[in-house]
Design a protein around this nucleic acid. Structure first.
Lengths: 345, 345
DNA sequence: CTGAAAGCGCTTACAG
DNA sequence: CTGAAAGCGCTTACAG
């Protein structure tokens, strides 16, 4: 059978309990004892049986991150950082993909995977207002996104409206006047889209410009390259006049940028483009993409910190945090000199 | 305390063992008994304590997928599929990122995370020939990639040379004669690069063309957009004449494509471009990217199947599999009509 | 078809 | 500073 703490203890001339104390960093151990134990561990090649520990403590040291699709760059990057942040706290992450399907999002909450983790970082897409009661579950949840809120749950969100306003102001400051807002969806009264559109609207109106409905271009909910390309293509085909695009995420922006260039529009000369999210891809596009960093570094850290603290019972009242955002200058709005000065390092 | 099988059994008028039998699908149970047990489970809200089960069985139902970086699209897509394939077998995946750092790659093999999983799907970048002994570990490993091989380990690889040859032949068939090979690295005698270069070389030579060393363009090891753009830019600056690019992965190809377009070259008219990997991004680029699908659907399925079978002890001799590849036609080589005919659906 | 007993390998009180 | 006992909640033989 496997080597146990008892075996290690026998070898070191101590009890299993002392071995446990050494491994778990219990402070009051005579150095000589500790050394003998560590030596025995090495000699016997002892490995902790983590199932036994979990059974005894009731903790697994594992959290779940439930998101729509790992292959969407935004989520891949989020997952990467959540894993790093969790590792720094000794936690292990299990990623679950629900694809924005309601049935799978419900399964995330109650399915058998919940017997494998101590807590859940949850970024739903299909759940929304009216589903709050589903979130009353007997384990800690940290919510991400703008789809659903719950007074008892920690929530890491974004300054969507303020950031969208800043993005629009950036375009206005460069003299752009006919700015497309790509992403608002009239069917959707909740989520990032209406919040970002509100920021756009506020900036435009504060600049003394009437919001032109022809420039508020809805898209389907999956904000990807193809949608961005198709949407801007249709706008051009329809003869709509515009000199800038604020796309509600980077994939839309990059898709639109490709399509505009394919149709001979120069960026930023003819059309300035700004995105939202600050995914890696925008740093390698041609030109580089000006975008909003909604707090890429902070969001995963906060989410993991909150779930960890909640799970360990050291958290205070449920809280809602929205990290600082910042505008990342790129070539797509002619702001690359700033970039060169190191703003994006 | 939590509800246990004993509690459920008491409620249903049976023993804990019978509850266990019901949950685990043991066949010989009277329907009436089973129904009473299931009812009791529902009434009491019983949840399995998976730590206890793991302690008893010695199995956790968990596998690790160790890869360089989740934020690299190729790996994000691989991870996504591995998770799906694992779920289909009732396995849970833990992703570990080693960043291609040797110290972290070693830690993957021996670190404490190995006490949390039953097996490892391992895609190393820093380990290589000479490190085989490090892979002699007391748990199942399935290797991915071309860096290191081991006679006792299952290995899922690609038909690198044959696929690279097919890619090059595709360009040759369209009358291209000066084909850049982007990615070979003279310092690297092992890995995908030399294998893909061999395929390129074979195709060119079979076409009766001498391989021009000026067209074999080395890159640094991280095959990303920026590298592709920079590399092709330098080639143009140096006045090298070429009418096609075979990039050793899609990110290089997409970076090169951007840069060429930024410099006014038309694709595919002036330069045809083909990549390798078939990542999602190439389906949305302008033009779409012709590429090699090295078996994207099969690789994760085989890897998970092998680790599962090995771990359950139902596997035969260690095996090496390399799925079928296929050429995915796109606009970057003027092959989009094929695409339109449904070849990429 | 089902039950009673034992034990997987830890950690938690409880002593000393 | 360290030990002996008990028990976390399952499943595995062993019976019947």
């Amino acid at each position: 059978m496997a080597v146990t703490m008892r075996d290690v203890g026998r070898r070191a001339g101590v009890s299993a309990k002392t071995v446990s104390n050494v491994i778990n960093g219990y402070p009051y151990i005579r150095p000589a004892t500790r050394d003998r134990v560590l030596e025995a561990i090495a000699e016997l090649g002892y490995r902790m049986n983590t199932s036994a520990r979990s059974l005894r403590t009731g903790r697994r040291g594992t959290i779940a991150l439930a998101l729509p699709e790992l292959r969407v760059p935004y989520f891949a990057e989020l997952a990467s950082e959540v894993i790093h942040a969790a590792e720094a706290r000794g936690l292990t992450v299990i990623i679950e993909q629900h694809g924005g399907r309601r049935d799978l999002e419900l399964d995330v909450l109650t399915g058998s995977r919940r017997d494998l983790t101590d807590g859940l970082i949850y970024s739903p897409l299909a759940l929304g207002p009216g589903d709050e009661a589903l979130l009353d579950v007997p384990y800690p949840i940290v919510l991400l996104g703008e789809r659903i809120f719950h007074p008892n749950l920690d929530h890491v969100t974004m300054q969507n409206t303020a950031a969208a306003k800043a993005a629009t102001e950036h375009l206005l400051a460069q003299g752009r006047r006919r700015i497309v807002a790509m992403g608002p969806n009239p069917d959707q009264d909740v989520g990032s889209a209406p919040l970002r559109f509100a920021g756009y609207q506020a900036a435009v109106e504060e600049a003394g410009i009437a919001v032109d409905p022809a420039l508020a271009v809805p898209t389907k909910r999956s904000w990807d390259h193809a949608t961005g390309a198709r949407t801007i293509g249709r706008l051009v085909d329809d003869g709509v006049d515009f000199d800038a695009v604020f796309a509600f995420n980077d994939s839309l922006a990059l898709g639109a940028m490709h399509e505009l260039q394919a149709r001979g529009r120069r960026i930023p000369d003819d059309v300035a483009v700004i995105g939202f999210d600050a995914i890696d891809e925008g740093r390698y596009s041609n030109p580089t993409l000006t975008t909003i960093d909604p707090g890429r570094a902070q969001i995963p850290r906060d989410a993991v910190r909150l779930i960890d603290e909640r799970q360990r019972g050291v958290a205070g009242d449920p809280c809602r945090v929205a990290p600082e955002f910042r505008l990342v200058p790129g070539g797509s709005t002619g702001a690359e000199e700033l970039a060169a000065r190191g703003a994006r390092a």
